[in-house]
Amino acid sequence: MDSFGKRLFIALTPGKTFLDRLQGKTKIRLFFAFILILVATWDMRILFPILIISIIGLISIKPEWKTVRGLTIFTLLMNLFNLFLIWVVSPNYGYSQVGATTVLVRFTETYILSAETLWYFLVRLTKFMATFFVSLTFIQCITPSEMAAGLYGVGIPYKISTVVSLAFRYIPEIARDFNEIKISMQARGLELDSRKSSLITRLKQNVLILVPLIIVSFDRVGNIADAMDLRGYGRMKTRTYYAEHELTKGDRIINIVNVLLYAGFIAIVVVRIVSHREFLIWAPWVK
């Protein structure tokens, strides 16, 4: 619908799927519940189900596959490359994490491939990809206004959540100003072509674009502040949000899920503190 939204992978108008129709507050709680658990655990028995759930979540909101696919492939390749580098630097890394070495392939004396290292890599990849899919789903199903409303809903002062929505509102305008100023400077002879001027000159010349951009942006900020004052912004300690609709059945269900997830998170933390595992990662064949 608008090119700006598409470029940043965000939706400005709410979608129609189950996750889309939740309250901003519920979405934020759900997101943080998953993220906390993903940070807290290295246990494949928890990570793998979350990965599956996050993929189902992503599919359920019917995202634009073109953008999602590119980003997913990029993230996956970066992670695989990262793991490969870890293996190159320390081929038996799995031992330090799992506490055993079952050699699968031996290339040279030091370069081995163990089941534990592979398992560790698989756990790590699952953890990262689950985090990625949870975040992607969250960003795709929440509008900036719901985000602002949701943040306020979970107890963040509304002046801070306003900053979030204002940023989304005015960043494209600033980008447009920047473009226009750049164009007029180019017509006056500013050379931004890397083949024709050195990096230093180009950096110096970019300052020429920034000066008017800052002045124009300050003018705009003044106008926005006036507009908000005139409509009573900051009049009261509390605020309501047009974008935050009433509790739906879906919200009630997810709120129960949220309670369970937070309880699960606490359980995971408690178990980790109490159990004093010598090695970080559980593997089915290591006792």
Binding site: T143, S145, R235, T240
Partner: peptide, 27 residues
Amino acid sequence: DSDAQFVGLSVGEDIAFSLENQSMPRS
């Protein structure tokens, strides 16, 4: 400046802005 005074991210939100500031229930 019709652009700078549009503080909402949608038409509905912008119209509602002063009501939001009065803490009026959404309904």
